[in-house]
């Protein structure tokens, strides 16, 4: 059984989700992953069962890996900004 993460560890994971989601260059993907990250953490916040939390934590770490890779890909192949997006909008970690 994987170790139960501390409160601090979960918070740090959440922070990483938000940071990586924010670094998507694509507007729709950025907004989606921000929304879904917030939603998922909020939804699972009341779970107390240690085993369940540990499992979710492990799954979330895998998802974070996906997010980290895909964020980079999104930064490599960029497109024009959408008409609803300010040209100076965020989404590029290097700027």
């Amino acid at each position: 059984m994987p170790a139960t993460p501390s409160r601090l560890q979960v918070l740090s994971l959440y922070k990483q989700f938000i940071r990586n989601s924010n670094q998507f260059n694509n507007f729709n993907f950025r907004e989606y992953f921000l929304r879904i990250s917030r939603e998922k953490f909020k939804e699972n916040a009341p779970i107390q069962d240690k085993e369940k939390v540990a499992k979710l934590y492990e799954a979330a770490q895998r998802d974070l890996g996906v997010l980290k890779r895909q964020k980079l890909i999104s930064q490599m192949y960029t497109f024009d900004k959408l008409v609803v997006e300010s040209a100076k909008d965020q989404g590029d970690s290097r700027s």
């Binding site: 729709n28 993907f29 497109f79 024009d80 900004k81 959408l82 008409v83 609803v84 997006e85 300010s86 040209a87 100076k88």
Partner: peptide
């Protein structure tokens, strides 16, 4: 207007991203 130029995608029946 200081905004981008790429159109909003609203044709999800044709295909999805």
């Amino acid at each position: 207007t200081g905004f981008g130029t790429r159109p909003i995608y609203m044709d999800m029946q044709a295909t999805t991203p």
